[in-house]
């Protein structure tokens, strides 16, 4: 199937008082129709900035997309006019955000806010839009949806708010739904409900999804493909099964090691990766993960590894073959 979205060499930087932060450093990936892509990495790895750069939602200044293309339906999202961009946002590519508490306008009713994409993109009247909003809210499992249109965000629980957020993103039937850690702020049982809801809606509506999370566990059951990000780089990318069965990058191995697994017989100790991801003020001349890496060799301190093919449709950016301990190149 053809690529719905193709991102090549995306680079985003922030000008700050401490220097230029290289938040995204040449990220490439593609998304097929109806496909679900997971983007995984610790907090601060550039996941949000990657997707927000595509929709041009990063604050400029201080942010700036310095290189790359993001082709969607034959057009580059990064180069289109503001007006064209607005017609894509919310109508064709919609986004849901991490914190359902702060992501709604506290002084506008839910009905009003969920209706906005319909009024903007479908030219619906307020009344038509509200009827559709009520349908959408029922679809995502808000009880008594009709009566709740005039309620304000603070009158909903966190989980309910995230459902409303999903309804708001899907009102215009977008081709791509970008979910930026939509369950991080919720407690575990609610998380599972939201993931199930999104799965169900994906089956009904058929949109492609980019699901950002730092939880590899969620992605396992949801995505077909996973990009693991570190310090603004995609450091490993593969289909879900090979990635989980045979992770190649030490960082991915570390992330999986910190994940409790039900399929493991003997109880294994959870491993965690020491340290924090770096904030890059320069293009790195070494592997950005090297300072935290238990497999590192001399080469890692001299040269930043590019993505290399390590299996069929499986790429990793590491000089060392972690299974054998041999050098890859």
């Amino acid at each position: 199937m053809a690529d719905l979205l193709n991102v090549q060499g995306l680079e985003t930087q922030f000008r700050t008082r401490e220097g230029i932060v290289h938040a995204v450093n040449g990220v490439s990936f593609s998304l097929k129709e109806g496909e679900t892509l997971g983007i995984v990495g610790e907090s601060g790895c550039g996941k949000s900035v990657t997707v927000m750069s595509m929709l041009r939602l990063i604050p400029m200044p201080p942010g700036k997309v310095t290189a790359g293309t993001a082709m969607y339906q034959g057009k580059d999202l990064l180069k289109m006019s503001n007006e064209e961009m607005r017609q894509v946002r919310g109508a064709q590519i919609a986004m849901i955000f991490q914190d359902p508490m702060t992501s709604f306008n506290p002084v506008l009713t839910i009905g009003r806010q969920v209706a906005e994409p319909l009024e903007t993109h479908m030219g619906m009247s307020r009344k038509q839009a509200y009827a559709r909003v009520a349908e959408m809210l029922s679809l995502v499992g808000i009880p008594n949806a009709k009566e709740r249109l005039n309620d304000y965000p603070h009158q909903f629980s966190g989980g309910m708010r995230q459902r409303v957020m999903i309804a708001m993103a899907l009102t215009c039937n977008p081709q791509i739904l970008i979910a930026d850690e939509p369950t991080t702020a919720l407690d575990v049982t609610i998380q599972a409900q939201i993931v199930d809801l999104v799965k169900r809606l994906r089956d009904e509506l058929g949109m492609a999804i980019i699901w950002i999370t730092h939880d590899l566990g969620i992605v396992a059951g949801l995505a077909e493909r996973v990009n693991v990000m570190y310090a603004g780089y995609v450091i490993e990318t593969a289909q879900v099964k090979p990635l989980y069965a045979n992770p190649q990058h030490p960082y991915t191995i570390g992330l999986l090691g910190s994940l409790p697994r039900v399929d493991q017989r003997e109880r294994r100790r959870l491993i965690s990766i020491e340290g924090l991801p770096p904030v890059l003020y320069q293009k790195p001349t070494l592997c950005p993960f090297a300072p935290r890496c238990v497999y590192k060799v001399e080469r890692c301190m001299q040269e930043n590894p590019p993505l290399m093919q390590v299996g069929p449709d499986h790429f990793a950016a590491c000089w060392v073959d972690t299974a054998t301990g041999r050098m890859r190149a």
Binding site: L57, Q87, R89, P117, M168
Partner: peptide, 11 residues
């Protein structure tokens, strides 16, 4: 955040 949400809707 809600201003970003508003923009993400294409307003």
């Amino acid at each position: 955040d809600y201003v970003r949400t508003a923009r993400s809707k294409g307003l």
